[in-house]
Simulated scan of single mutants.
Amino acid sequence: MGLQRPVEPFHRPYAGPEPPAPGRRPRRLIAVLAAAAAVAVAVVAAVLVMSGGREQEAAPRRTPGGSAQPPAVRPSGSPGPREKVINALPAPCGTVAAGTVERAVPEATRRQSANSTLTTCTYSSTGSAFRWLRVEARLYAPGDTATPVQDAEGYYDAQWAQAHDAPLVRTVTLERRGGIGDEAYRWFKTDEGQPTVVGQVTARVRNVVLTVAYSEQAPRKGPADARERACLDTATAVARDVLTALSHS
């Protein structure tokens, strides 16, 4: 029996742990990142375009001759270039022609009242036949409000609404009428407290609202409506005189 060869120890060389294999990114995450990048690029481009457009709008316009003009700036509520406002009212009893007054109220006495924004003139008959004429003008001055025309429109609309529910009168006709100022309506009514009839015209011209009321005794015989046309024609003639006077103020 021979000698056994001694067993030699086996030395295994040391090797560090292998790094794990890199994981794969999901395709969905890659798509989301790409879409976000595209959106960011689009937003930046839009901002640049908008800022460039504002700079172009702010730049002064040039006439065909090449000279620069600043852009037109119109304050909010101010009248347009063709909408000339009225700055002051004429004298209270100076708006109706003498001949018109004589035909409406012969040999009349008059009484007037005025301030910077409201004028009234009242003509009363002195004879046996009752006749009465009142002219009122209300101004919305551009020095008192930034929207004089709009304020006058609001007052006119309020008067139109009140005419539909007026107490102590019986409305015979109430209708809008063109060709008198910028807008107007005519109103024929009877006074339930007195035997009188009234023809009234309310009109607006730019920033002024005028009201003309002509009254006379109701017919003793026959319906009061018989005087409708005559009373309204008288009030309309007076209103046209007032509009003419306002056009020169």
Score class of each variant (00 low, 15 high):
Gly2Glu: 14
Leu3Lys: 15
Leu3His: 15
Pro6Arg: 12
Pro9Glu: 14
Pro9Ala: 14
Arg12Phe: 07
Pro22Phe: 01
Gly23His: 03
Arg27Gln: 12
Arg28Phe: 11
Ala31Thr: 09
Ala31Pro: 00
Ala38Pro: 01
Val39Ser: 10
Val41Asp: 00
Val43Pro: 02
Ala45Glu: 02
Ala45Thr: 06
Gly52Gln: 10
Gly52Val: 02
Gly53Thr: 11
Pro60Leu: 10
Arg61Asp: 15
Arg62Leu: 09
Ser67Trp: 14
Ser67Ile: 11
Pro70Asn: 12
Pro71Leu: 13
Pro71Val: 13
Val73Glu: 10
Val73Gly: 04
Pro81Val: 12
Glu83Gly: 02
Ala88Asn: 10
Pro90Ile: 01
Cys93Thr: 01
Gly94Val: 02
Gly99Ala: 15
Ser113Glu: 15
Arg134Gly: 11
Tyr140Thr: 01
Gly143Val: 05
Ala152Phe: 00
Ala152Leu: 00
Glu153Thr: 08
Tyr156Asn: 01
Tyr156Glu: 03
Asp157Gly: 07
Asp157Gln: 14
Gln159Ala: 13
Trp160Ile: 03
Trp160Tyr: 14
Gln162Met: 09
His164Pro: 00
Leu168Ala: 14
Leu168Cys: 04
Arg170Glu: 12
Arg170Trp: 04
Leu174Tyr: 07
Arg176Asp: 15
Gly178Glu: 15
Ile180Asp: 03
Tyr185Val: 05
Arg186His: 14
Phe188Gln: 05
Phe188Ala: 05
Gln194Ser: 07
Val198Phe: 06
Arg204Leu: 01
Arg204His: 01
Val205Pro: 03
Val208Asn: 00
Leu210Glu: 08
Ala213Asn: 14
Gln217Asn: 06
Pro219Lys: 00
Asp225Met: 03
Ala226Arg: 08
Glu228Lys: 15
Arg229Ile: 06
Ala230Gln: 14
Leu232His: 06
Ala235Val: 09
Asp241Leu: 06
